[in-house]
Nucleic acid binder design. Structure first.
Lengths: 206, 206
DNA sequence: TTACAAACCAAGCGCTTGCTTGGTATCGTC
DNA sequence: GACGATACCAAGCAAGCGCTTGGTTTGTAA
């Protein structure tokens, strides 16, 4: 099951919006604007202009501006959790599973969902208390995948540090790539970057 | 030369403001507010109230709100560059230097300058183009320290991955600790966390 | 063709924002 | 004790903000 099949299945279950729907297009533009200018600096007029409607018309689709931010985050987490689950299932050994997770997360961050992932990392403070709790709950599922694999590696003696700490460190390190990694202008491919991360952790390549 | 001596010397050179001066107190409160609510969500009225003056009076000390943000960032970088330089100089081997840098950066992020460090990481988008260039230039000096040590480790065969990539990954990982590391409620001390990071990189403790 | 809901527009309201202005204490200095 | 600089207050302005409103167009299905 590849990335596109997963997306289609999530769309069918109404868990994420189709990219070519009105809602999907707005969320994509919103993610881009939120990442580039920040949530607060992005006005509802900016958002409306990006999809070619009047600012007031936005509120036919979403009740508040914050609801747009929340939707960007929720749909992104849903998609990426599913993608990473699939990537993990496809791998056999713990080492390969780790590599698959790293690779998948780098792809999420630096690929098509990159804008939304950056929003997820940098704009959580702009969420209301209740929305934040909702998003955090979804992220816990995501997090559990990592802890499972890192726990196995620890048990196998392949990992020296604490799985919990390593997961957090990796999350920071991988998220941060969005600020500097530019695959288009530079020799380092996504696979190459994955190799570097795995090597950094002291795992030789499989 | 300890942290306090370094601070005093920087104050004497007018490179950072004294913590008990009017300017210093404002910058400290600003860092706290910017971290907690974000730069955009923090109003000049919030800032003024935090130091007990009227909002208009702020503009006697700073020309614009953005100048406050920039000052927070610039002074923080100056202090931390000096602290890390000292930490590095005090260590002998490359491995010890790396440990000293990790430990010093974790202390910057999770200690007294933690609020300002978080601002540095999360609020750079709120800077104007020109201010951003200025701040980035200062950060390059900071960055060079790391590359020096990581380069040595690579030459010694102690590091498998590319120093440049490792530095970026470490920067992300260490910065990210600000979102989850809570020394006050949990067994992990700063030294313990430093151990974990060094272990994660495959270096045994010295 | 009719009926009705979804999608959108044009206009603007009420409020908050960063910042300005004119004036007033407070202070060290000669 | 007069003076100038520094630090501050009280009031408010112009602009921009999220969001509302009343009405019009578009799409869909009987």
């Amino acid at each position: 099951m590849n990335r596109d099949d997963i997306l289609q299945s999530l769309i069918a279950d109404n868990l994420v919006s189709a990219p070519d729907s009105a809602r999907g297009r707005l969320l994509r533009e919103a993610a881009r604007l939120f990442r580039d200018k920040g949530y607060e600096r992005t006005t509802v007029r900016d958002l409306a202009a990006a999809v070619g409607i009047q600012s007031g018309s936005l509120f036919h689709h979403f009740r508040t501006k914050e609801e747009i931010l929340k939707a960007v985050m929720v749909e992104t987490i849903r998609l990426n959790t599913a993608v990473m689950q699939a990537a993990m299932d496809a791998a056999d050994s713990s080492r390969e599973k780790l590599r698959a997770l790293v690779r998948a997360e780098l792809e999420s961050i630096n690929g098509q969902t990159g804008e939304a992932m950056a929003v997820l990392v940098y704009e959580w403070r702009s969420l209301s208390e209740t929305s934040r709790a909702e998003v955090l709950k979804l992220r816990d599922i995501y997090e559990a995948l990592w802890l499972e694999v890192l726990g196995s590696l620890k048990d196998e003696g392949a990992l020296a540090a604490d799985p919990f700490v390593v997961r957090r460190m990796l999350m920071g390190a991988l998220s941060w790539t969005v600020t500097w990694y530019r695959p288009e202008r530079g020799g380092l491919t996504l696979d190459g970057l994955t190799d570097q991360v795995v090597a950094m952790l002291g795992f030789s390549q499989s």
